[in-house]
């Protein structure tokens, strides 16, 4: 790994002649910044358009996928992670992994208890039926 004190001067690209050098950190070219912004706006239009296309279950995965791509663009280019020390990236990715872990275990738990919760809870059954089978006669049936 390059020595930190000199790392900013090791990257020659990104600044025109005569432009001041930052003492620390990495200089991102204007072209990269504008391209990232444009890509984010285009992806926003795509994700709005995708809302009106019926893909069934895939709709939400497509929406989340586009959001992940956008988040990656922001963090790599706007937040300089592409050129940063890898440890900063590890902090971000690590926190996201823990969120995913929490999500997975919570969803497994909710999935496991969904049936018993409804079985032992006539009101929940009624709510469930109201929502999914509005004409199902349960409580008012003689």
């Amino acid at each position: 790994m390059a020595s930190h004190a000199h790392s900013s001067h090791d990257h020659g690209h990104g600044h025109a002649h005569g432009e001041a050098h930052p003492l620390v950190g990495h200089l991102v070219p204007y072209s990269t910044l504008f391209a990232t912004g444009a890509a984010l706006l285009v992806l926003t239009v795509i994700t709005v358009a995708a809302r009106y296309v019926d893909l069934g279950e895939a709709n939400i995965y497509l929406a989340i996928g586009i959001a992940v791509v956008k988040a990656t663009l922001v963090s790599l280019f706007f937040m300089h992670l592409r050129w940063d020390r890898p440890f900063n990236l590890m902090v971000l990715v690590g926190s996201m992994l823990f969120v995913v872990l929490m999500m997975v275990f919570c969803m497994m738990d909710v999935g496991q208890y969904m049936d018993t919760e409804n079985k032992g809870n006539p009101k929940a059954v009624q709510n469930y039926l109201d929502a999914n089978a509005p004409f199902a006669p349960v409580t008012s049936k003689k």
Binding site: R51, D54, I60, A67, K70, S75, F78
Partner: peptide, 15 residues
Amino acid sequence: DLVWIFLFPLFYLIH
């Protein structure tokens, strides 16, 4: 900005 990038499709763009 990142948080909003996820909030927007999850609330406004539900098919």
